[in-house]
Design a protein around this nucleic acid. Structure first.
Length: 263
DNA sequence: AACCAGGTGGAGC
DNA sequence: GCTCCACATGGT
């Protein structure tokens, strides 16, 4: 089934290559396959329309955040002069509502890593342990990762993050953290997440934003820090606090427009 | 051949 | 609280 969207605020390329998601593959300039959990969709643009072709239309309607008014968000953020040109470049970005476990493990792998390598590690992880869905493999469930040891993650190219993955999988499997994350406020959810091995401030903010839909977050990575640092805000923590205060509930959107435009 | 990549954790102060 | 630094891996 294929759903149609006005493409002004929904471009496949901007949405998928702005750094929020790792499981996608480009077929051409504005034509992508994207995988989430155990499902997939083809997202492509023709003229001023974006099409989503999938067997799970209701899932991807939510995944692509279809009911949020990005025109209103960009109007609010355009008032900040430092964002004006970023929004012109990236106004087709949508913040995806991704699977929580997939987001947690994906961003643990992202630490001190580059995006092409993150993508290939995650693809190998899916191929090794995720269910065969015919043409692609699902992201592994916690149950499927139950007995995966550090040396196996190491063999998949995860490097020093092997023990983080083992430790986090065990906690997610054996505690009620996942259910608590869904109902906790953003601050409490952040504290829960930073208690996981391999999850610090930045990775927690990515999980909050991309896996829990908390747009009042501002992940500060090396790129954002270089773009935002000043004499006043000379540490990642200060940049984060300043931008959270400045952009409020729109901080997550602001961060994505900036990341996409400056990376 | 150093340096970098969507950083984190730990030791030492 | 803070500052250094090791940590796998592959690309430039």
């Amino acid at each position: 089934m294929t759903a149609l969207y006005d493409g002004e605020f929904f471009e496949p390329k901007a949405t998928l290559t702005c750094g929020q998601v790792f499981r996608y593959r480009a077929l051409s300039e504005q034509d992508y396959l994207v995988y989430s959990g155990d499902t997939c969709a083809r997202v492509f643009r023709k003229g001023s329309t974006t099409y989503v072709d999938t067997d799970a239309p209701q899932y991807f309607e939510r995944y692509f955040d279809s009911t949020t008014d990005y025109g209103a968000i960009t109007e609010r953020l355009k008032k900040f002069p430092e964002l004006a040109c970023c929004i012109d470049k990236g106004k087709g970005i949508r913040i995806l509502k991704q699977q929580l476990v997939e987001t947690v493990l994906g961003f643990i792998i992202s630490a001190n890593n580059n995006i092409p390598r993150i993508q290939s590690i995650i693809e190998r992880l899916c191929n090794a342990f995720g269910a065969d869905k015919g043409g692609f493999h699902a992201f592994p469930t916690l149950e499927e990762l139950k007995d995966v040891g550090a040396q196996t993650y190491r063999a998949l190219g995860c490097g020093f993050r092997d023990r983080y993955l083992c430790g986090t999988v065990k906690i997610l499997r054996t505690t009620d953290m996942l259910s608590r994350l869904g109902t906790a406020d953003t601050l409490s959810a952040g504290e829960l997440l930073t208690g996981l091995p391999g999850v610090g401030r930045k990775v927690a903010d990515c999980i909050l934003l991309f896996g829990l839909g908390r747009t009042d977050c501002y992940p500060v990575d090396t790129w954002i820090f270089k773009a935002n640092r000043s004499a006043q805000n000379d540490t990642p923590r200060k940049v984060r606090d300043y931008c959270l205060q400045r952009y409020g509930k729109d901080a997550g959107y602001a961060q994505q427009y900036l990341f996409y435009a400056t990376r």
